[in-house]
Amino acid sequence: MKTLLKLYGLFFKIGIMTFGGGYAMLPILERELAEKRKYVTMEEIMDYFAVGQCTPGIIAVNTATFIGFKRKGVLGGIFATVGVVTPSLIIITLLASALKLVAHNEIVKNAFAGISVAVCALIVQAILKLVKSGIKDALTFGIALASFSASYFLGASPIIVILISAVVGVIAKSILDKAEAKKKNKEEAK
């Protein structure tokens, strides 16, 4: 029980210190878990991150679940996960109720209108970053275009888009890999 509470407290602290997206969490995880406590190695943290990116859910939370589970099994995973989301629950709830009270204030309204513009600019940056790491060839470009069109013109639900993309990914990548293997074989035969 003591270890579980410690895990909860540790990830509560990490949750507070995570500002922004999942990547912002990396240096904090490294310091708190790898250097100070030797719970995991830096390589393991990178592994968890890599898997956390391509499994459903929030990357930061996935990493917490991994490390908690590794330390103390199922309960450890649960305590670490609850720990990392508790600060958000408290802070956002307080903030949301406070903002509701002043939502009709002219100054607050103007401030949020300006902030919304900044949010759009930040999302553009996020998209550009994703494009750099995610669009590598004609196939991935085509998928991005197709998902845009399906969502914009047809109003397809995100779930459908994700499912179809996964299936297309498996089929297309298999074909590409086979073609490449064939090419290699031919070259070797020469």
């Binding site: 999302i123 995610g134 196939l139 991005a144 888009v161 993309s165 996964a166 990914g169």
Partner: peptide
């Protein structure tokens, strides 16, 4: 392989 591009399109 194709999930990141799909997310880009939807975003």
């Amino acid at each position: 392989f194709c999930l990141r591009p799909a997310t880009i399109g939807m975003l």
